[in-house]
């Protein structure tokens, strides 16, 4: 059954333009000009119930605007949206009970009070009984490994603890559609893993649809089988994660540190040199050559440190779009 259905969705903004300097400021005081920005341009997609979909794209691609339209925060300029069978922009209470929006960079918890106070407010707003509230806080708290933290002022919690408490507050009403905007932003690796594990468990347990934006490739790869790529307001890719990864990352980033000095020219055969200094080289190695090339390097040279990873998703997407524009 379809959970999110989007047809010909567009959003245009008027943005005021100001020239720099005093002259620009004076001109802006008396004569203001604006230009229209087409943030989202007629995109179509649908997401089934229980599906976990990654929504990625370079900064300014229109991801957050789309997300805001899907949860009813802003009205679309044109097009149709249906989420859980409702028109989001009407913000009907029944619709609001079915969804949640978690923003990594914003929080709904009351800063100077312990999270439990915000949880009790949310429970009352969603009409959850006292016993059911206790049960849900216990269950979700266990899934998120939260306990004493719920009774300490939010301002005294670490970023990771705050994010977990934020998730608990956002999911207390057990929504069936989750919109997550950078939920792991700024978290350390352990906290990122915990949040991902929690989202997987929540999806499994409650069959929730999860629509996720993130700049961390690991969030997308570990959670989503399907990914939507947005570029300049247009839907560039809608398909499996595997096909996108192949398309986006023909290379892997390999950083190597050596105990001895070696001529740089020796490493050219392993891949393109991205960066180097006396004891260090950063190579971009074709995906299929990573294992044989690394094995050979480890055999031939005295390696003290090695790091293999996918380049940041922003770079990969930029490269893809650059390649696309050159064609």
């Amino acid at each position: 059954m379809i959970s999110i259905d989007v047809k010909g969705l567009s959003k245009n903004y008027q943005i005021a333009e100001k020239e720099p300097g005093l002259r620009g400021s004076l001109k802006y005081l008396f004569l203001r000009t604006s230009r229209e920005v087409k943030a989202v341009q007629g995109i179509n997609f649908s997401i089934n119930e229980g599906e976990m979909v990654g929504f990625i794209g370079p900064n300014g691609a229109g991801k957050t605007t789309t997300l805001k339209m899907l949860c009813g925060l802003i009205h679309p300029s044109s097009g149709l949206i249906s989420v859980a069978g409702y028109k989001p922009q009407r913000r009907s209470p029944k619709f609001l009970r079915k969804i949640t929006l978690v923003m990594g960079q914003k929080q709904q918890l009351i800063w100077d009070l312990p999270p439990i106070e915000s949880l009790l407010v949310n429970a009352a707003i969603y009409g959850i009984s006292e016993s059911e509230t206790k049960r849900r806080i216990k269950n979700l708290g266990e899934m998120l490994e939260l306990d004493d933290e719920l009774y300490r002022p939010v301002r005294k919690l670490s970023l990771g603890q705050r994010m977990k408490a934020e998730l608990l507050a956002s999911l207390l009403h057990l929504p069936s559609v989750l919109f997550l905007d950078e939920p792991t932003l700024g978290l350390d690796v352990n906290s990122q893993i915990r949040v991902r594990d929690f989202l997987l468990e929540y999806n499994r347990k409650y069959g929730a649809t999860i629509f996720l934006t993130s700049h961390y490739m690991a969030d997308i790869t570990s959670l989503c089988e399907r990914v939507l790529v947005l570029h300049k307001g247009n839907l560039f890719h809608d398909g499996s994660m595997a096909s996108l990864t192949e398309k986006l990352t023909p290379y892997r980033s390999v950083k190597i540190e050596f105990s001895n000095l070696y001529p740089l020219s020796e490493f050219r055969k392993y891949g393109s040199i991205h960066e180097s200094n006396d004891h260090y080289v950063h190579l971009l190695i074709p995906r299929e050559r990573v294992i044989p090339n690394i094995s050979e390097i480890l055999e031939k040279y005295s390696v003290t440190d090695l790091e293999i990873k996918d380049p940041p998703i922003e770079n990969l997407i930029s490269r893809l779009f650059l390649k696309d524009s050159k064609k």
Binding site: L73, R91, L96, I99, Q108, I125, Y126
Partner: peptide
């Protein structure tokens, strides 16, 4: 500062 968004997404 964006604090209005979560308020608007609650059924009150």
């Amino acid at each position: 500062e964006g604090r209005m968004a979560p308020y608007l997404l609650q059924p009150i």
